[in-house]
Simulated assay, not measured.
Amino acid sequence: MRAPVGIVLVSHSAELVAGLRGLVAQIGSDDVSLATAGGTDDGRIGTSYDLVLAAIQQADRGGGVVVLPDLGSSVLTALTVLEDHPRTDVVIVDAPFVEGAVAAVVTAASGADLETVVKAAEEARNVPKL
Score class of each variant (00 low, 15 high):
3 A>T: 11
8 V>Y: 00
9 L>M: 07
10 V>I: 08
11 S>Y: 09
11 S>Q: 06
11 S>W: 08
13 S>N: 08
14 A>W: 05
14 A>D: 15
17 V>K: 00
17 V>R: 03
18 A>N: 11
20 L>P: 09
24 V>S: 05
27 I>S: 07
28 G>H: 04
32 V>A: 01
34 L>K: 06
35 A>T: 09
35 A>K: 08
37 A>R: 06
38 G>D: 02
39 G>D: 02
40 T>F: 00
44 R>L: 14
45 I>N: 02
46 G>M: 05
47 T>M: 11
48 S>F: 00
49 Y>M: 05
50 D>S: 14
52 V>F: 01
54 A>G: 03
60 D>Y: 01
63 G>H: 05
64 G>E: 04
65 V>N: 01
66 V>R: 02
66 V>I: 12
68 L>M: 03
69 P>A: 04
70 D>Q: 07
73 S>F: 01
79 L>Q: 15
80 T>A: 14
82 L>C: 01
82 L>I: 01
84 D>F: 06
84 D>Q: 15
85 H>P: 00
85 H>C: 03
86 P>K: 08
87 R>H: 13
87 R>V: 10
92 I>K: 09
93 V>N: 05
94 D>S: 15
98 V>A: 14
98 V>D: 07
98 V>I: 14
99 E>R: 14
100 G>M: 02
100 G>N: 07
100 G>Q: 06
101 A>I: 08
102 V>N: 08
106 V>Y: 12
107 T>Q: 04
108 A>F: 06
109 A>E: 07
110 S>Q: 14
112 A>C: 03
112 A>V: 02
114 L>I: 04
115 E>T: 15
117 V>H: 07
119 K>R: 15
120 A>P: 07
122 E>I: 08
125 R>S: 15
126 N>S: 14
126 N>A: 14
128 P>E: 03
130 L>M: 11
130 L>Y: 10
